[in-house]
Amino acid sequence: MHETLFYIFAALTLLCGLLVVFNPFSRNPVTSAMFLVLTMISISGLFVLLQAYFLAAVQILVYAGAVMVLFLFVIMLLDLRESEQRRLKTFSTVLGLAAVGGLAAVMIGTVKHAQAGAATAIGETRALGKLLFTQHLFPFEIISVLLLVAMVGVILLSKREVE
């Protein structure tokens, strides 16, 4: 069961991820965004398999539910229909492919021998919360400042010109 689900979700993740970047059928950014949503959801599925239920929910809630809506919103607002009519430069594409291929080879080569400890059931929301609010309270507070900054920044960048 676990294996099957893993392969399903993994395949979905990679397929959708690839379709975000390379879509032979459509160059529409909305399509990319939608596939990105699917990727997020599949990753959330993988999180569930890893028994990180809290993060799976957060992943959907934040990424799929908020971040991607924002993306979609912006794409629609700017009406980026045929954003990529320009041709991709062959040279840079080939270069990029080569570089990324090399990186992929290195990373996969490195990572495939990773060793597994024996997994036990963890991932309790409660434990996570405890950790977050005791030991890692400081980064938590920093993150809150970060969100404030983002808020101020977004308002500054997008509010109407005041004369």
Partner: peptide
């Protein structure tokens, strides 16, 4: 399914 399975998925996704 071990950790390396997930890691390969993640590495490929990263490269994509």
């Amino acid at each position: 399914i071990g950790v390396h399975h997930y890691l390969i998925v993640s590495a490929v996704l990263f490269c994509i």
